[in-house]
C-alpha cells in the first residue's frame, strides 16, 4: 500500500517536472486523471465547435453573391470540418471514442462554443464571422500551439496555418461592403453590431469567474487567461474596424495610455450565461440539424462496414 502511494507521488513528480521543463505530455505518458478529464472535455468541446460552426456559414453557401465568394466559403467550411476531425483524433488519443464524443454532443452533455448559437441573417455576417469569430478563435488557438498535450498542440499548429485565410476573407467581405453603397455599408455595420459582443464572449468568463482557468494554467494547458486574450483581441481589432470606416458598437471604447490598450464596456454576462445554458437563439436548431445529418448518414456507415467485412471474409477464405 505504502509503496503504491509512493509510486503515485513519484509519477506526479515526474509529470510536473516535465511541465516545468516545457516538455510535452504524450498519449502514453502517465498523467493525473484530472488532467486527462480536463483535456478530454476541452478538446472535444473544441472539436464540436468546429463541427457545429459549419452550420451558420453553411447556411450561406448557396446564396454567396459570386462564384469567387462561393468557392472561398465552401473551402472555409470544409477546413472547419477538417479542424473538427483533427481535434476528435487528438481527444481519442486520451482514450475516449469518437462515438462517445458524438453521443455527448447529440444528448447535450457536451458543450460547444456559444458563438454558433447566433443566427446568420445577412451576407455581411459571413464577413463578420470570418473576421471576428475566426479572429477570436485564432487568438486562442495561437496560444494553444504551446499547450502541454502533444497531440492537441500539433493539431493547433496545423489549424493555425489554415485559419489565416479564414480571417482575411472575412475582413475582405466587410471591407468591400463598407466601401460600397450606403445600404451595403449599413449591412456591414449591422453585422459588426451583432457579432462584436458575442465575439468578446468567446474568450469565456472573466478570470475571477473562471475556476477551471487557474488549474489549466498550472498544467500549461492554457498559457494566458481569458481576460488577457480578450484584451489583446480588442487592442488589435479596433484599428481594423476604423480602417474600413465602421464604428465599434461600444461607447466605452477608449485608448488607455497607462495600460497600453483599450478600455471597453462591460459584457452582458446574463446573455452569455443564457446562451451557454442552452437558451440562445439557435441552440436547439443547431443540435437538431446535427442529429439529423448524423442519422441520415447512418446508412453510409453501415454500408461501408458491411463492405469492409465482406472484403475481410474473402481475404480470409
Amino acid at each position: 500500500m505504502n509503496s503504491l502511494k509512493l509510486d503515485e507521488n513519484q509519477l506526479i513528480e515526474n509529470f510536473e517536472a516535465k511541465l516545468a521543463k516545457n516538455e510535452m505530455i504524450e498519449p502514453k505518458d502517465w498523467m493525473p486523471a484530472q488532467y486527462r478529464k480536463h483535456l478530454i472535455r476541452q478538446i472535444s468541446q473544441h472539436a464540436h465547435s468546429e463541427i457545429i460552426g459549419m452550420q451558420p456559414e453553411g447556411n450561406w453557401i448557396t446564396r454567396a453573391p459570386s462564384m469567387r465568394r462561393k468557392m472561398v466559403l465552401l473551402a472555409k467550411v470544409q477546413d472547419e470540418a477538417g479542424h473538427g476531425l483533427y481535434l476528435y483524433s487528438a481527444a481519442e488519443s486520451m482514450g475516449i471514442s469518437r462515438e462517445e464524443m458524438l453521443d455527448q454532443l447529440h444528448t447535450g452533455a457536451a458543450k460547444y462554443s456559444s458563438i454558433f448559437n447566433y443566427p446568420t441573417l445577412t451576407w455581411a455576417d459571413m464577413g463578420a464571422i470570418g473576421w471576428l469569430v475566426d479572429g477570436a478563435a485564432i487568438m486562442n488557438q495561437v496560444m494553444l500551439q504551446r499547450t502541454s498535450y502533444g497531440p492537441y498542440a500539433r493539431a493547433m499548429v496545423r489549424i493555425c496555418k489554415e485559419e489565416s485565410f479564414h480571417q482575411r476573407q472575412g475582413y475582405e467581405i466587410m471591407n468591400v461592403l463598407a466601401s460600397g453603397s450606403a445600404e451595403q455599408k449599413e449591412m456591414a455595420q449591422d453585422a459588426l453590431n451583432r457579432w462584436w459582443w458575442p465575439s468578446l464572449m468567446m474568450f469565456g468568463p472573466r478570470d475571477e469567474e473562471s475556476p477551471n482557468s487557474e488549474q489549466a494554467i498550472k498544467w500549461k494547458i492554457k498559457r494566458e487567461t481569458n481576460d488577457q486574450l480578450r484584451q489583446r483581441f480588442v487592442n488589435q481589432t479596433v484599428s481594423q474596424v476604423e480602417k474600413i470606416g465602421l464604428v465599434v458598437p461600444d461607447k466605452a471604447i477608449k485608448w488607455n495610455e497607462a495600460k497600453n490598450g483599450y478600455d471597453f464596456g462591460e459584457i452582458n454576462w446574463d446573455e452569455f450565461w443564457t446562451v451557454v445554458k442552452g437558451n440562445g437563439p439557435c441552440n436547439k436548431a443547431r443540435i437538431a440539424a446535427k442529429i439529423k445529418s448524423h442519422e441520415e448518414g447512418a446508412w453510409v456507415r453501415e454500408a461501408a462496414n458491411a463492405h469492409a467485412e465482406k472484403n475481410n471474409k474473402t481475404k480470409a477464405a
Binding site: 483524433s89 481519442e92 469518437r98 462515438e99 447512418a298 456507415r301 453501415e302 461501408a304 462496414n305 469492409a308
Partner: peptide, 9 residues
C-alpha cells in the same frame, strides 16, 4: 456496432 466510425488509421 453497425453505426461505427470505422477503425483508426
Amino acid at each position: 456496432m453497425n453505426d461505427s466510425q470505422g477503425i483508426l488509421w
